[in-house]
């Protein structure tokens, strides 16, 4: 054998294996346990609450895709969650099946995101953050006015009779487990799409825009079109979160989607870790853990104080968020 035929050691593994931290396999196993155990032990009501949090991962993932990978800030993803939820409720009223309605509501949220964001995307800078924040504040009173669509002041119920396990599965007594499973499946599907997206040529283009917009344009990346596309996908993710929330908790009201939901989603994305997929999961863990911690300690009975302080602290202590603490290689995360 000649030396030429010898494969260099560092090329013998698939490229992404090199980037795996030592937490990769333990992390997957932990995640699997965390997903599988709750349906075995939790009460139906608690499992429903958990499902609604799992669904929020999607909205945080949407923020992460936009901010962590493309460098655009949205302070209005709560709006897209709301649009998804209200659209779902109304499409079900039209007699559509859950699947079709959910798909259409997701697409519609994406389109709304595109329409709201387009004026801001024409200009470089923080204008998207400005304008989405404005819409986040304007959405609840706006939704209150559109009574026929949103149920006005009191909110409206959602017909979720069809969201039950098919009879051949024999899960008729465990509706909540089925719903939980469905949520996990949808979230996993979006994660798969997001991963493929960011590993692709488009993903590299996104990161280039994040790091240097002018350079990206010089490389022949259509900056404006790509930004708009990412915004649409990101808003669609949040829309799916709204879709699932609407059929999990068959009651939606304008009050559920106020500006602080948007701010919390953004805070969760930053706390979890921008520019890493797993960051979205950590972010939602923070969303759950903070109130639980407050309840246990009882020292600071104000979530906002903890979240705000956490957001400031994390920028100083762990610029790559919770996920960054587990990463040896931080080349994929935005420069701090």
């Amino acid at each position: 054998m000649t030396a030429l035929q010898k494969v260099p050691a560092d090329l013998s593994e698939p490229p992404d294996a090199q980037e795996r931290s030592r937490w990769f396999w333990p992390g997957w196993m932990l995640l699997a346990l965390v997903i599988v155990i709750p349906p075995l032990i939790a009460e139906p009501l608690d499992l429903n609450k958990l499902s609604r949090l799992v669904v929020l991962v999607l909205a945080v993932l949407g923020v992460n895709l936009l901010t962590g990978y493309t460098g655009l800030i949205s302070l209005g993803h709560g709006v897209f969650v709301g649009v998804g939820a209200f659209t779902m409720a109304n499409l079900i009223d039209q007699g559509m099946s859950l699947f079709v309605a959910g798909f259409l509501a997701t697409v519609f949220s994406g389109i709304i995101g595109l329409v709201l964001g387009l004026p801001a995307l024409r200009v470089r800078g923080l204008y998207l953050a400005l304008i989405t924040f404005g819409f986040a504040l304007a959405f609840p009173p706006f939704a209150r006015r559109l009574g026929s669509w949103t149920g006005g002041v009191t909110g409206r119920t959602v017909v979720n009779d069809a969201f039950v396990p098919p009879s051949f599965l024999g899960l008729d007594d465990h509706v909540h487990v089925w719903r939980y499973g469905c949520c996990i499946a949808v979230v996993a599907l979006w994660f798969l799409i997001a991963r493929n997206l960011i590993d692709s040529r488009i993903g590299r283009a996104m990161r280039t825009i994040r790091d240097d917009e002018a350079a990206a344009a010089t490389f022949g990346i259509n900056v404006r079109a790509l930004k708009a596309g990412v915004l649409a996908i990101s808003a669609a993710m949040a829309g799916t979160a709204g879709v699932l929330q609407a059929i999990l908790n068959p009651y939606v009201s304008h009050g559920d989607f106020d500006a602080f939901l948007s701010l919390r989603l953004y805070a969760a994305a930053v706390l979890g870790g921008l520019g890493t997929l797993v960051g979205a999961i950590f972010g939602v863990v923070a969303l759950i853990a903070v109130p639980a911690f407050n309840g246990a300690v009882g020292l600071i009975d104000n979530e906002a104080v903890v979240f705000g302080a956490g957001l400031i602290l994390v920028t100083f202590v762990a610029p790559a968020g919770i996920a960054g603490l587990f990463h040896r290689k931080s080349g994929n995360t935005p420069a701090a």
Binding site: A267, A304, G308, G310
Partner: peptide, 8 residues
Amino acid sequence: GMLILLNG
């Protein structure tokens, strides 16, 4: 973060 913190 300060916006959320100060409001809280």
